[in-house]
């Protein structure tokens, strides 16, 4: 902007209020930048951050058990409530689900990403691109709805199992304690499948980006030096793909931690963290506990990001 200062020396100041104001602002670069960032600072910096801090402060309040009113005094009692068996179960259940979804997404994403990066070209490359982008950008609720169609008792999955004479296998899976249930749409197995489907593209994209950067001759060199395919996978390919997997796992892990709609629609009645937050702030009216619950995913993700950073996940984003 500094060279703009030379303009009035050559040209006469322009007429008109708008043009004059614009010129004046441009002649004062600090003022210009201040005006540029003023709206965002007012909105995000004050209203949004203010709201976040207000929420955090509420987690240090507690609720009076008799009147149901919020007591505005500093206490750690609400955080203590998180460690009651019932609430601790909710946290552990959510973390276990997030870990399972992340691990499965990594396993499922790798061959897709590897094939797309190394072997697919031309129209196949475009097909893989669309195949990942379409589910990524389709409406979240429509994806959940699609799985309601798939998992319904009279739906396509049960039909496929019946046609393949594998109904016994499905029944055996549903009979497993904890992950099973009456049918897929009211079991953890069903919840897991829907989570896996919805977040899988978030894993494929960074893994593929990491694999695209692996030089092809590196794998040929490994083979020339006598590595078996298994060895070149575990000693060359996997270590180079790891930052991509770590980057993808940030998405799959954090998105599963915060979600409250999928387990509400496909799953049994046991709560996940997101649902606990929702019911505590809504029907239960216990804002302090809801606020304390929201701190849990933030804390877990903080730890997770710290670990992922050490693995170099941010270079692959």
């Amino acid at each position: 902007m500094s060279r703009a200062a030379a303009a009035p020396a050559i040209f006469a100041p322009r007429a008109g209020l708008a043009a004059g104001l614009a010129d004046w602002v441009l002649l004062h670069p600090r003022m210009f930048v201040f005006l540029l960032v003023l709206p965002i600072t007012l909105w995000l910096g004050i209203v949004y951050i203010g709201a976040l801090i207000a929420l955090l402060i509420q987690s240090f309040f507690s609720i009076d058990e008799f009147s149901g009113m919020v007591v505005r005094e500093f206490t750690l009692k609400t955080y203590g409530e998180l460690f009651r068996p019932y609430n601790l179960d909710i946290i552990l259940r959510t973390v276990a689900m997030a870990a399972a979804v992340t691990a499965a997404a990594a396993v499922l994403a790798f061959p897709i990403a590897y094939f797309a990066a190394r072997y697919a070209r031309g129209k196949w490359k475009a097909l893989f691109y669309i195949g990942v982008m379409l589910p990524l950008w389709s409406s979240y609720l429509v994806k959940v709805y699609a799985w309601k169609l798939v998992l319904a008792r009279e739906g396509i999955l049960n039909w496929l199992f019946a046609k393949a004479h594998l109904t016994w296998l499905l029944d055996a899976v549903l009979a497993i304690p904890v992950i099973g249930g009456n049918s897929l749409s009211v079991s953890y197995a069903g919840t897991f499948l829907v989570f896996l489907y919805i977040w899988l593209p978030y894993m494929i994209i960074p893994v593929q980006a990491a694999l695209e950067r692996v030089p092809g001759p590196l794998l040929e060199a490994a083979a020339d030096l006598g590595a078996t395919p298994r060895q070149s996978f575990s000693l060359v390919l996997l270590p180079l793909a790891l930052p991509g997997i770590a980057a993808g796992s940030i998405f799959t892990f954090s998105l599963t931690l915060g979600d409250y709609i999928v387990p509400q629609i496909v799953g049994n009645s046991r709560l996940f963290i997101g649902q606990a937050v929702y019911t505590q702030q809504g029907t239960a009216g216990n804002i302090p506990l809801a606020a304390a619950f929201t701190v849990v995913p933030i804390a877990i993700m903080g730890l997770y990001l710290w670990g992922a950073r050490r693995m170099g996940a941010f270079d692959a984003l």
């Binding site: 976040l52 929420l55 979600d259 606020a291 929201t294 933030i298």
Partner: peptide, 13 residues
Amino acid sequence: LPGIITGISLRSA
């Protein structure tokens, strides 16, 4: 941040 956190803090604001 998870959408639920943005949502709940805006609601309380």
